[in-house]
Amino acid sequence: MQLFPCPFCGPRDEHEFHFAGEAGKARPDTTRTVSPEGWAHYLNDQRNEKGRVREVWMHLTCSELFAMERDSVTMEVLSSAPLREDAQ
Protein backbone atom coordinates (compact mmCIF):
# COMPACT_ATOMS: atom_id res chain seq x y z
CA MET A 1 0.00 0.00 0.00
CA GLN A 2 1.36 3.28 -1.07
CA LEU A 3 1.45 6.56 0.80
CA PHE A 4 0.62 9.54 -1.36
CA PRO A 5 1.41 13.08 -0.30
CA CYS A 6 -1.71 15.23 -0.62
CA PRO A 7 -0.36 18.77 -0.98
CA PHE A 8 -2.83 19.90 1.67
CA CYS A 9 -3.17 16.96 4.08
CA GLY A 10 0.26 15.37 3.82
CA PRO A 11 0.88 11.65 3.41
CA ARG A 12 -2.22 9.48 3.36
CA ASP A 13 -3.08 5.90 2.48
CA GLU A 14 -3.52 5.23 -1.25
CA HIS A 15 -7.12 4.14 -0.64
CA GLU A 16 -8.02 7.78 -0.15
CA PHE A 17 -6.90 8.69 -3.68
CA HIS A 18 -8.25 8.40 -7.17
CA PHE A 19 -6.26 8.53 -10.39
CA ALA A 20 -7.56 11.30 -12.63
CA GLY A 21 -5.28 11.06 -15.66
CA GLU A 22 -1.86 11.92 -17.00
CA ALA A 23 -0.81 15.48 -16.33
CA GLY A 24 -0.14 18.05 -18.98
CA LYS A 25 -3.07 17.43 -21.27
CA ALA A 26 -4.99 20.64 -21.96
CA ARG A 27 -8.61 20.47 -23.04
CA PRO A 28 -8.90 21.87 -26.55
CA ASP A 29 -11.04 24.99 -26.87
CA THR A 30 -14.17 23.40 -28.25
CA THR A 31 -15.77 26.73 -29.12
CA ARG A 32 -13.30 26.77 -32.00
CA THR A 33 -12.68 24.12 -34.62
CA VAL A 34 -11.01 21.05 -33.22
CA SER A 35 -9.89 18.45 -35.73
CA PRO A 36 -11.02 14.86 -35.20
CA GLU A 37 -7.36 13.89 -34.88
CA GLY A 38 -6.74 16.58 -32.27
CA TRP A 39 -9.76 15.51 -30.25
CA ALA A 40 -8.92 11.82 -30.57
CA HIS A 41 -5.41 12.59 -29.35
CA TYR A 42 -6.84 14.42 -26.35
CA LEU A 43 -9.20 11.57 -25.53
CA ASN A 44 -7.11 8.53 -26.27
CA ASP A 45 -3.40 9.06 -26.45
CA GLN A 46 -1.62 8.10 -23.26
CA ARG A 47 2.11 8.23 -22.73
CA ASN A 48 1.99 5.36 -20.25
CA GLU A 49 5.66 5.77 -19.53
CA LYS A 50 7.94 3.45 -17.67
CA GLY A 51 9.82 5.30 -14.99
CA ARG A 52 9.21 8.93 -14.13
CA VAL A 53 5.58 9.95 -14.72
CA ARG A 54 3.54 13.03 -13.95
CA GLU A 55 -0.09 12.39 -13.17
CA VAL A 56 -3.19 14.08 -11.82
CA TRP A 57 -4.73 12.52 -8.71
CA MET A 58 -7.57 13.46 -6.44
CA HIS A 59 -7.43 13.12 -2.70
CA LEU A 60 -11.01 12.02 -2.24
CA THR A 61 -11.38 12.95 1.42
CA CYS A 62 -10.43 16.61 0.91
CA SER A 63 -11.11 16.75 -2.86
CA GLU A 64 -7.69 18.19 -3.59
CA LEU A 65 -6.78 17.73 -7.23
CA PHE A 66 -3.04 17.67 -7.61
CA ALA A 67 -0.17 16.75 -9.84
CA MET A 68 2.10 14.01 -8.60
CA GLU A 69 5.40 12.90 -10.00
CA ARG A 70 6.30 9.33 -9.29
CA ASP A 71 8.31 6.45 -10.63
CA SER A 72 6.07 3.86 -12.21
CA VAL A 73 8.69 1.16 -11.74
CA THR A 74 9.91 1.69 -8.18
CA MET A 75 6.63 3.34 -7.04
CA GLU A 76 8.71 6.06 -5.44
CA VAL A 77 6.85 9.35 -5.12
CA LEU A 78 9.00 12.26 -6.27
CA SER A 79 6.80 15.31 -5.74
CA SER A 80 3.26 16.57 -5.49
CA ALA A 81 1.78 20.02 -6.03
CA PRO A 82 -1.76 21.39 -6.16
CA LEU A 83 -3.10 21.60 -9.66
CA ARG A 84 -4.66 24.98 -9.06
CA GLU A 85 -1.28 26.65 -8.56
CA ASP A 86 -0.05 24.69 -11.52
CA ALA A 87 -2.71 26.26 -13.68
CA GLN A 88 -1.88 29.79 -12.57
Binding site: G10, R12, E16, L60, T61, C62
Partner: peptide, 21 residues
Protein backbone atom coordinates in the same frame (compact mmCIF):
# COMPACT_ATOMS: atom_id res chain seq x y z
CA UNK B 1 -9.45 1.54 10.73
CA UNK B 2 -6.76 3.84 9.37
CA UNK B 3 -3.03 4.42 9.25
CA UNK B 4 -3.17 6.97 12.01
CA UNK B 5 -0.67 8.41 14.45
CA UNK B 6 -0.62 11.32 16.83
CA UNK B 7 2.93 11.91 15.63
CA UNK B 8 1.75 12.40 12.04
CA UNK B 9 -0.11 15.69 11.77
CA UNK B 10 -2.48 16.34 8.92
CA UNK B 11 -4.26 19.55 8.05
CA UNK B 12 -7.61 18.05 7.15
CA UNK B 13 -9.68 16.08 9.65
CA UNK B 14 -11.38 14.29 6.72
CA UNK B 15 -10.25 10.68 6.57
CA UNK B 16 -11.12 7.26 5.41
CA UNK B 17 -11.78 5.18 8.54
CA UNK B 18 -12.78 1.53 8.12
CA UNK B 19 -13.80 2.50 4.59
CA UNK B 20 -16.10 5.33 5.68
CA UNK B 21 -15.39 8.95 4.78
Amino acid sequence: GAELSLQKPSRSVARNLFGFG
